[in-house]
Design a protein around this nucleic acid. Structure first.
Lengths: 338, 338
DNA sequence: CTGAAAGCGCTAACAG
DNA sequence: CTGTTAGCGCTTTCAG
């Protein structure tokens, strides 16, 4: 049934029907007639026709690198909750860590198929900036700050600093670092800086020799932990940029007879489920992923309402979760997921 | 720029432009002209106008209960990969385990906003069947079989049987069961049946007293393991319907001095990352989530092409992953994620 | 407050 | 192979 048929059925004009569904002026009498007719027929306006006519799709695109990563999934859950409340639909593109797909996804936006975009950040190239700047629709970057654009991110530097400082406060003096590519500003650069902040505050000098770079997975953590520990045998604590890497490092320790925390303390950022239940529960820093997703969605909705407001950026705090990998005795409660 | 302006720019008719973008008859000469004009202007047909006109949106809706569950996320990754190849967009609804939201999502489909649906299954009520049957668009159920509809599912019964049989083959004779609600046909009913199959094959009689039901999370696993072991103190092995539950059980054992596998063997279904790195690596059954997602998407695309074909259902196999929780020595390789 | 009318940008007959 | 034409279903002036 279309609006013409429905209007005839309800005995009103098409315009009245349109006003009913869009909150325009309407006499009580017509409103009641239309309401009854809608209940009787189940008529709903065609979204496609509305999209064509109004040039708004009420759809938001979320672009992310890897859905099966716990952090991404949680952020999308947050986004989804807010969008749903507001009657927006969520279009998802998983780029599977393929930068060219990310670019392709952004280019797709020029087809105006969505009202706004949330981009879960990874590595930004100049090409990203070019495309993002040329976009005429609201964009929110989630996961790192990005000058000139709205963003919601975590205090990665503070998180890394807190995790490292926690180990140094326990008397460790030879800290190692297992990080990720510095091209990733949040997990790479900022967490490295936070690590170094903690060292300096403790009167230590960061040494590049005591740092290795790994890919974003457990296996890389295992390998790089091996390479680092073989080279720098006297480390007494190790900060890892992500839980996955730390878990890989933990596996390495387990299979090579290195006792955690006695011989080597371990701390990371991310507070993943796997880390909480690992063979030595992993001290980690909890970031508020779901909340970040919610805020990003809210920020986008505000932008949709007021397209010309100044870009704003929001940085969320963190919670250190001390566990056995730094010699802390976690309360039982602590391990259950939020 | 719209098709009229573009056609004028290229010096051809609107129909020729439409044919160019939709693969109709066209002389080489016009094709070349349009191609050049498209390259010069970046013109792309409006998707909304196409949707309105053709009544196809090239969008597929995925409804799922919890995005941050590893299995869901992997299935969506598979779906996403196939849809992307085929030029379909993926609309996502996360019901957050709220059945009423699931129903609401299905009702939303009556607005024809998508071409097809993939429903990641949980608990089906009669209301589900009513709505699903009334839908005129292709549906694929992912995660369990559902008579009368296309589905892609796992051999949950076989998986549970294999995990249980593995422990019995090691000489254990007093098996316990930690399951989930039977309303969930896949993880609840079928895995329980598989557990009982294994017992019968080993000449044992399943006893309801040796079985507890838990929610889908670690904490419930912890609690129900506690309650079960307190009641049935002589259990020598425990099958858990999900890895999360098994990990909870493992935590219980750890905090109560029960040695795994010596005092109690543990096996589950799901092969999660957390299980692989748990303090005793968890024997589990790997299900092919990503593949299931891919197949579901492919099945939906076939249905989109041939709406009146018979519903088909596909059941995927599984791989038992023996690890330390059943006294097996996993090769190091085994723990890294796929 | 109301209805008529003019499109939004595109596709698919249809008649050449 | 090609162009003309008639809408897809809706919103939004505009004149009452």
């Amino acid at each position: 049934m279309n609006i013409t048929e429905f209007a005839a059925y309800a005995g009103v004009s098409k315009a009245a029907v349109s006003r009913y569904f869009n909150g325009g002026y309407l006499s009580e009498e017509k409103r009641a007639r239309i309401e009854a007719a809608a209940a009787a027929t189940g008529y709903r306006p065609s979204l496609q026709a509305q999209m064509l006519r109004t040039r708004r799709t009420r759809q938001v695109l979320v672009i992310l690198p890897k859905l099966s990563s716990e952090s991404c999934a949680r952020m999308v859950e947050g986004i989804s909750a807010i969008l749903e409340e507001s009657g927006y639909q969520l279009l998802l593109i998983n780029t599977a860590n393929d930068s060219s797909k990310e670019i392709a996804a952004l280019n797709l936006l020029q087809q105006n198929t969505v009202d706004g975009v949330i981009l879960i950040a990874t590595i930004f190239t100049p090409e990203h900036r070019t495309i993002l700047s040329s976009l005429r629709l609201p964009v929110v970057i989630l996961g790192q700050e990005y000058p000139g654009f709205c963003s919601v991110s975590h205090d990665d530097r503070g998180a890394a600093r807190a995790a490292t400082a926690h180990m140094l406060a326990k008397g460790r003096r030879r800290p190692g670092f297992l990080g990720v590519t510095m091209k990733d500003l949040a997990a790479g650069l900022n967490r490295r800086r936070g690590f170094e902040d903690a060292l300096k505050e403790a009167g230590l000098v960061p040494s590049p020799k005591r740092a290795n770079i790994a890919a974003f997975n457990m296996e890389a953590g295992y390998e790089q932990a091996g390479s680092l520990l073989a080279r720098e045998g006297d480390l007494d604590c190790l900060f890892c940029a992500t839980d996955s890497i730390a878990i890989g490092a933990l596996q390495y320790c387990r299979s090579h007879g290195i006792r955690v925390p006695e011989d080597l303390m371990l701390a990371a950022v991310g507070d993943s489920e796997a880390g909480r239940v690992a063979y030595v529960p992993l001290t980690s820093v909890q970031l508020h992923y779901r909340m970040a997703g919610r805020l990003a969605a809210q920020m986008l909705l505000e932008r949709l309402a007021q397209p010309h407001a100044q870009p704003q950026s929001r940085v969320l705090d963190f919670v250190l979760r001390p566990r056995a990998s730094t010699g802390d005795d976690a309360s039982g409660e602590d391990i259950w997921a939020t």
